[in-house]
């Protein structure tokens, strides 16, 4: 993506908001390039939905500025922001047919019945719901409703599409194929998109960049690969749940630090089999011993819970075809130097 050469579609500057005396947004900065998909990822109550609602104009700000398509829209009502929104529960109008739901926004723009029908028909083809055009939303499955909500939000050709947990109401069987087909569609029409999710896998699979939010702030906004490799803080690393964190003040040799911790992706932690040579470069890597607490059989791998001799909780991923590890077993483990990143306290 040639993001740097294109004008930003959305710029949020120092967005601040208090609700009921509690700060919900604390100076949030965020910019989306045209055609880019950014996921706001965070736990419940971190402010991600409030930020999305503020961009949509459904929630006012105490301070800060929101620019959409290069224009200041901070005070504009939702009708005049030119954004499309897919709500968590879709909020389809139950008294209108699928076609009428999709036409609704186009007609509100005063573009006339013929144009609205043409646009809605094209979108029905795009989301594969032509056969259901005359049905009411109540007659559709969850996945079909989600696609109607998407088509309705796209019908006005918004410069920015906002989606609030759009796949969370779906069964896992439908969720994964639907979000993949959405991603394909989003790329196909080059739609700028801001998605709120608490699902890490969803965020990483869909987004060009992921903004990790804590307590009303964006702690890190980076491409998925960058986040996996280089979390900006211990908090981000802990939230992503894909790292082993090792206390830096008990580290060996050159890794020893006065504080903070060393983070290494879970897959970087390897068992040193008996008789095998430890690390290629013991000067930069870390060899440690840990005891097996429990093994959890997952769909794709076995996750082994360990505790290091220094007391750090560790996680080890094993293939299903590898020999099982018994609880209480003492292992020698290693992490290669390049996988380690020091995170200050």
């Amino acid at each position: 993506m040639d993001g740097m050469e294109r004008a930003p579609e959305l710029v949020v500057t120092q967005a601040a908001l208090q609700l009921g005396g509690r700060p919900v947004l604390r100076g949030v900065d965020l910019a989306l390039q045209r055609g880019e998909l950014v996921a706001l990822l965070g736990a419940s109550g971190c402010g991600k939905t409030t930020l999305l609602r503020s961009v949509a104009g459904l929630q006012g700000l105490d301070g800060g500025r929101i620019e959409i398509g290069g224009q200041d829209r901070t005070q504009a009502p939702p009708q005049q922001r030119g954004v499309g929104v897919v709500f968590q529960q879709y909020a389809l109008f139950p008294n209108l047919s699928v076609l009428e739901n999709i036409k609704f926004g186009v007609l509100c723009d005063g573009r006339g019945q013929a144009e609205a029908t043409r646009r809605a028909t094209a979108l029905l083809d795009l989301v594969g719901l032509q056969a259901h055009r005359d049905q009411r939303p109540a007659r559709l499955s969850g996945g079909q409703r989600q696609r109607v909500a998407l088509a309705r939000a796209l019908a006005r050709e918004p410069s920015l599409l906002l989606m609030d947990e759009p796949f969370s109401a779906l069964d896992e069987n439908f969720r994964v194929p639907l979000r993949r087909s959405f991603r394909q569609l989003q790329r196909q029409i080059d739609q700028t998109c801001l998605i709120v999710t608490h699902d890490r896998e969803e965020a990483f699979e869909l987004a060009d960049r992921v903004a990790v939010m804590f307590d009303g702030r964006i702690a890190q906004c980076a491409a998925p690969a960058e986040l996996w490799r280089r979390p900006a803080s211990r908090q981000v690393a802990e939230f992503l749940g894909a790292f082993n964190l090792l206390a830096a003040d008990v580290a060996p040799g050159a890794l020893l630090r006065g504080g903070g911790c060393w983070a290494a992706p879970i897959e970087a932690l390897q068992v040193v089999e008996e008789g095998a040579e430890a690390l290629a470069d013991p000067a930069t890597g870390w060899t440690l011993r840990a005891r097996v607490l429990a093994s959890h059989f997952g769909q794709q791998r076995v996750s082994v819970e360990l505790r290091s001799e220094a007391g750090d909780p560790l996680q080890l991923w094993r293939r299903h075809d590898q020999a099982p590890l018994a609880a209480g077993q003492l292992l020698t483990l290693q992490v290669a130097g390049p996988a380690l990143q020091h995170l200050p306290q």
């Binding site: 459904l58 922001r81 929104v85 709500f87 909020a91 006005r156």
Partner: peptide, 25 residues
């Protein structure tokens, strides 16, 4: 509330939403 918010983001005035969606419901 979600219906109103959805309608507003689709460009509808509250009066239009009342007439087209809420009153029929």
């Amino acid at each position: 509330q979600p219906l109103l918010e959805a309608g507003r983001t689709l460009g509808a005035s509250d009066l239009h939403l009342l007439r087209r969606v809420l009153l029929p419901l």
